[in-house]
Design a protein around this nucleic acid. Structure first.
Length: 1187
RNA sequence: GGGCGCGUAGCUCAGUUGGUUAGAGCGCAGCCCUGAUAAGGCUGAGGUCCCAAGUUCGAAUCUUGGCGCGCCCA
């Protein structure tokens, strides 16, 4: 016996029980044990941060991360799933600061780095429980117990090892990074913090003359000593730090003469009038043809303050340009880089011009030159922009790009403002030691006195202020920072990227490829506290540096001291996790003797690293791999690299997807630079896959769309535009959510979260399948169908039940059985094919269609067999076996998608009857495979046709307002394509039953019912006919379709004339459609017309009434709570002769259908009658269970 | 401002290499069925495939340019 279906139990309730079962029986672990020797399918978990609550978006990620490993496991792979947690970074610090009510770095240091770090470590687990609960409740199988954690010592050391490797290969260097700087507080702010404090203020907007330096080029362009660039800026205080002026290469520039002073100015032609208006004087354009920005490039000028100019005057000439010939550089991307225009949106031809110009020049100076920039506009200012790379990120990029073209000494970055906001001693004397923001006026006054200030005005714009000190402005400011030379590996990263299978595909060359193409060196260091410490120690005397690859390596250094700081902390607080010893502040205390200078010590730099580096290092750091030649770490790493599958949301393109690829490429790329380093060559861990020559860390990556809130906005905590996932689990269940996520759209669609849609996915699929199962159980139990008893110890796998005595070979079963089994195999083939291609959406659609066919055609058409009285008839047993097989296979098919429901079905249908002879969980089974022999495409097509005809018949009935209960004499079926006609004739009974008609006829003379329409086959005729094509359809339309067909039948072709051109159309070049003629109760579609005979005879009417009676009686049975098998007695009292007649004529039928022992036309004693309506007629129905 | 993606029914989304009646589910309307029954099914209405131009015999699909939305970057 199968356990009865408990109707009071909800899906969520069953899921909880299943979850308990998995846990108590260690099913997940068993799936791994079962595949211990199998080939591996490698999955990487991109580590989430557990210091915030999980939201529905995380459900999508985790659901997708679950379905493919489950699928591959059932397909015979060993798929370990190591969980991981991202634990470092600013967000953690911000959380802790909030808790402490403090903000600045000063406050953190006042609070104490040591307690602060300890709080950070605790804080990262704040929502751990919620995450684990979500993971478990969603059915995401992943090894949480052995999760990797980025702050763990072994992880940190792994990261150190990789950084040491890069350092030793000269891929780590120090440079500047422009950050948003709070000078008063002495700290940088994160982008998020900056965004909080924008305000509109009025600033000076000044136009300053930069006199041109008269060299050959200036002379050639016709300038003279009185010529100046008219340069615009809104930050006069940055003028002493001027390094370039920027022009747009495509803008036209004019040279004008000031009518009052006679001086000449260079500015954008479009702005001449505007500025003349401001000055209220005439500016006479001297050169009507003008120059474009390109013409002005490389011209030199005198900066407004000479403090740096003087100092570097002698060094600038030393700079040598990298030489390159035209042959070296072919593609535009390379040109952009050489021309220093990698970030600009310039036209290709402009880039090429700049590139060629630079190629011709042999020597130049680095600073105080005209350079090209794409961001210059003519919307405001003068079209010539002052560049102080120290105080702007775009300005800094210009410097970086320019520097790339030179080698030798030169002014690196000109900056005469100290971090506290005061001018340094390098600044002009009158501002030294003063706050930068107090000096704008004095600088302007000075410029005016020296005749350099052309114009000044006020300018309103948005400026960022510190969100915790309202009056303090933030300024872009350069900070020393460590960089990874990723740009050296750009080509290799691109090559690696090309080998990755991205879904959707456009990520490869689109978002991700473009991002790689404009790669800049990775700014690695952070001036923060909670992160992986940068493992670089500096000689306090010489400034020389060393990288350290592990804690032990550090301890082994001669003269190593400072570990007592940790020891004392640990002694005072034994609960401190040992992992903290490799963190700030403890690690900062550890020093050792400098190998570079006697008596000097090596001390660690103060920075920690970008936490994206942590996550990108996970392919090896999750195992604590540190380059070992052998051992368990090496083995784990080697066997689990690269990943076959990863998946995260779109926002990870610049995050985890990039960090993984960059780190892997740098560590294991096989470029020349890398190979020339002998020392490294020796210890190289060489990963070469024959089919994947590049070490890309993952082979397949599904990039998920972002999940938006109900309102279409980004999900946000403050807006509360989504429900807590746990509510969804409680109301609808994890399977409902999973199926909604898998089956409704491609995973990269950015879906709008919709509770209603989750709700809707239940009846559409889950409940429908459940009902089929429920139907099966009810009747199997009634009839005592027990596969377990028959099959015994054979189990269900590999058709163990072939041994069962009532199990007949498929060939002996009915067509309907063979059909559904064929559909089952077709579905299986499709699901496997799509899932192998990481296409869960199409796979789910195939499953949905199958369950629909099973429920709405197989079960429906098999009901007679399930209801038949003879419990042992072969036909009945066939139906049970077939449906049973379908349900079991379906439970396996759906197991990766809706693991709970699948398990429920497996437990109730299989375990209940086979016990421990079979796999104790559906997830331990092999995934179904399809047998070609079981697939019968012709049968499938024919069955579809029957379903189609039935559907049309119902439509015709509906049109004619003849309900299905009313039998009709006949239908005529007319087929445009008669391929399957003979088969259909044999199966007329099915259609007759579906449509409740006595006879189905396949009309030989359809002309009275239908008209034919001949349409061209566009695909075949299009290329042949060309321009005549559009005229063919109307021409064919005008002809009589029936005649055309006769023509075709007689001559094998159709002759038609269009515009005096005679055409012959072959049978395959046309398509014949048929359409019902007016005046018939008919419906047509897809080459089929169904025509109803609408006349009703007395007999038909009586039969209709009998069926109505059945319905009324069944209703009554239900009302009084009859079991399906209860026998009843019926009394019907009516005045209607027609009803009386119907009862007499169809008494047996009525009794049979309703399990009535007797039907009388009298009332039954003590049983109250019920007034009912039979068709148009009144009657009173008495009904009781037979004694 | 740049890059990428998207725009198809009231809603959520499919739509393979261009081929002439553009699909599904929900919702809505009408109906059916009733031994899966606080289920199930059928039918219908509903579309300028964002707009414009182009390529083509033919465009939801390809190209270009707009408009709108989203994400990332600046």
């Amino acid at each position: 016996m199968f356990p009865a279906v408990d109707k009071s139990e909800s899906f969520p309730q069953r899921e909880l029980a299943i979850g308990e079962f998995w846990k108590s029986q260690n099913i997940y672990e068993k799936t791994l044990v079962a595949r211990a020797e199998a080939p591996s399918f490698v999955f990487y978990e991109g580590p989430p941060t557990a210091n915030g609550m999980p939201h529905p978006g995380h459900c999508l990620t985790r659901a997708i991360k679950d379905v493919f490993p489950r699928y591959r496991t059932m397909r015979g792979f060993r798929c370990e799933r190591k969980a991981g947690w991202d634990t470092h970074g600013l967000p953690v610090e911000v959380e802790v600061c909030k808790e402490l009510g403090i903000h600045s770095k000063e406050e953190i240091e006042a609070y104490g780095i040591e307690p602060f770090i300890q709080k950070c470590q605790k804080s990262v687990w704040r929502y751990m429980q919620e995450w684990e609960r979500l993971t478990e409740r969603l059915g995401f199988w992943v090894n949480l117990e052995e999760a990797y954690v980025t702050y763990h010592q072994s992880y940190v050391e792994s990261v150190w090892w990789s950084l040491k490797t890069l350092f030793d290969r000269d891929l780590l260097y120090q440079g500047h990074k422009i950050v948003w700087w709070w000078a008063q507080g002495g700290t940088a702010l994160s982008a998020g913090e900056v965004g909080q404090g924008y305000r509109e203020v009025a600033d000076p907007s000044v136009f300053v003359k930069f006199p041109i330096v008269m060299d050959d080029k200036a002379k050639k362009l016709g300038f003279d000593e009185k010529t100046s660039f008219l340069v615009w800026t809104t930050t006069p205080w940055t003028l002493p730090s001027n390094q370039f002026v920027a022009v747009h290469p495509e803008i036209e520039y004019a040279t004008v003469t000031d009518s009052e002073t006679g001086e000449k100015l260079i500015l954008a032609k479009d702005l001449v009038e505007t500025i003349a208006g401001k000055m209220k004087r005439e500016l006479k354009i001297e050169n009507e043809n003008g120059n474009t920005g390109i013409d002005l490039l490389e011209l030199r000028y005198m900066p407004p303050f000479d403090c740096f100019y003087k100092k570097h005057d002698t060094t600038i000439t030393k700079l040598q340009r990298f030489s390159f010939g035209d042959d070296d550089v072919e593609d535009l991307t390379a040109m952009r880089i050489y021309a220093g225009l990698s970030q600009s949106g310039l036209k290709p031809e402009s880039v090429e011009k700049v590139f060629q110009l630079y190629g011709k020049l042999s020597n130049s100076s680095l600073a105080w030159r005209v350079v090209p920039a794409g961001f210059v506009t003519t919307e405001s200012g003068s079209g010539i922009v002052h560049q102080a790379p120290a105080f702007g990120e775009v300005d800094y990029d210009v410097l970086r790009d320019q520097k790339a073209r030179f080698e030798g000494e030169g002014p690196e970055l000109i900056n005469c403002v100290a971090p506290n906001g005061n001018f340094t001693d390098e600044a002009p004397e009158f501002v030294r030691g003063r706050k930068y923001e107090d000096c704008n006026k004095d600088i302007n006054r000075d410029l005016k006195q020296r005749g350099l200030l052309y114009h000044q005005e006020q300018y309103r714009h948005d400026v960022s202020f510190c969100w915790r000190a309202e009056e303090d402005r933030l300024i872009p400011y350069p900070r020393e920072s460590w960089f990874i030379r990723t740009t050296n590996y750009k080509d290799q990263m691109l090559a690696n990227n090309s080998k990755i299978h991205w879904l959707p595909e456009h990520i490869k060359d689109g978002r991700f490829g473009k991002f790689l193409g404009s790669n800049v060196d990775w700014a690695l260091s952070r001036e923060r506290y909670w992160g992986t410490p940068l493992p670089i120690w500096v000689c306090q005397e010489t400034g020389k540096k060393q990288a350290i690859g592990s804690y032990q390596e550090l301890l082994d250094k001669p003269g190593c001291t400072g570990t007592e700081v940790w020891d004392e902390a640990k002694a005072a607080n034994p609960d401190l996790p040992d992992d903290l010893q490799v963190h700030k502040p403890y690690i900062d205390a550890v020093t050792y003797d400098s190998p570079f200078a006697k008596g000097a010590t090596m001390q660690r730099v103060t920075e920690v690293i970008d936490c994206w580096y942590d996550s990108g290092a996970m392919p090896f750091a999750q195992w604590g791999y540190r380059g070992q030649e052998s051992g368990p770490e090496r083995e784990r790493f080697e066997s689990q690299f690269p990943a076959d599958f990863i998946s995260e949301a779109l926002d990870q393109t610049r995050g985890w997807f990039y960090s993984q690829l960059a780190i892997s490429t740098l560590l294991w790329g096989n470029d020349e630079a890398r190979m020339s380093n002998d020392e490294q060559k020796k210890s190289t861990f060489d990963i070469r896959h024959s089919s994947f020559p590049y070490p890309h860390p993952f082979r397949n990556c599904i990039v998920l769309g972002l999940m938006l809130g109900e309102d279409g906005q980004k999900m946000s905590k403050s807006k509360r535009n989504y429900r807590d996932p746990s509510e969804i689990f409680d109301h609808y269940g994890a399977d409902a959510l999973r199926w909604y996520l898998f089956a409704n759209q491609a995973p990269w669609t950015s879906i709008r979260y919709s509770e209603q849609s989750i709700k809707d996915s239940i009846p559409e699929f889950l409940l429908r399948l459940w009902n089929v199962y429920s139907f099966f159980t009810i009747y199997a139990n009634i009839d005592g169908f027990d596969p377990g008893k028959e099959v015994g110890s054979q189990g269900t796998e590999d058709r163990g039940w072939d041994a069962a005595k009532s199990y007949r070979p498929m060939a002996e079963r009915s067509e309907l059985d063979r059909w559904i089994i064929s559909e089952l195999h077709t579905t299986t083939a499709k699901v496997v094919e799509r899932m192998d291609a990481y296409d869960n959406y199409a796979a789910c659609q195939a499953i949905t269609e199958f369950v629909d066919a099973l429920s709405n055609w197989y079960v429906r058409r098999s009901r007679d067999r399930f209801w038949a009285n003879d419990k042992q008839s072969p036909e009945k047993l066939d139906a049970y076996w077939t449906l049973y097989e379908c349900l079991i296979t379906t439970s396996k098919l759906i197991a990766p998608f809706v693991p709970f429901l699948a398990e429920s079905l497996w437990q109730k249908l299989v375990i209940s009857v086979f016990g421990d002879q079979v796999e104790e969980s559906v997830h331990l089974c092999d995934y179904p495979t399809s047998e070609v022999a079981a697939i019968d495409e012709v049968l499938s097509a024919r069955m579809n046709l029957v379903r189609h005809i039935s559907s049309l018949g119902r439509k015709a009935r509906s049109n004619a307002e003849l309900k299905v209960r009313q039998p009709l004499a006949s239908v005529q079926v007319i087929l445009a394509d008669t391929t399957h006609k003979d088969w259909l004739v044999e199966h007329a009974a099915v259609i007759a039953e579906e449509l409740n008609v006595k006879k189905v006829e396949y009309s030989d003379q359809p002309d009275q019912y239908v008209e034919h329409e001949v349409l061209p086959n566009f695909k075949l005729l299009g290329p042949k006919l060309g321009k005549l094509m559009p005229k063919l359809k109307p021409a064919l339309n005008q002809e009589n379709g029936t005649e055309l067909l006769a023509n075709l039948r007689d001559n094998g072709k159709i002759n038609i004339t269009i515009e005096d051109k005679k055409l012959e159309l072959l049978p395959e070049e046309i398509e014949v459609r048929i359409k019902a003629r007016e005046g018939w109760a008919a419906a047509n579609a897809k080459g089929v017309v169904v025509v109803l005979a609408t006349e009703l005879t007395d007999d038909l009417v009586a039969e209709g009434l009998a069926r109505d009676l059945v319905r009324v009686i069944q209703d009554q049975r239900k009302e009084i709570g009859c079991d399906f098998t209860d026998r009843i007695e019926i009394g019907i009292v009516t005045e209607s002769d027609k009803v009386k007649q119907a009862i007499e004529m169809f008494g047996d039928y009525l009794a049979d259908e309703t399990l009535a022992n007797s039907i009388t036309q009298k009332s039954i004693d003590k049983i109250a009658g019920n007034s009912v309506k039979i068709g148009e007629h009144e009657a009173t129905l008495h009904l009781r269970v037979a004694p």
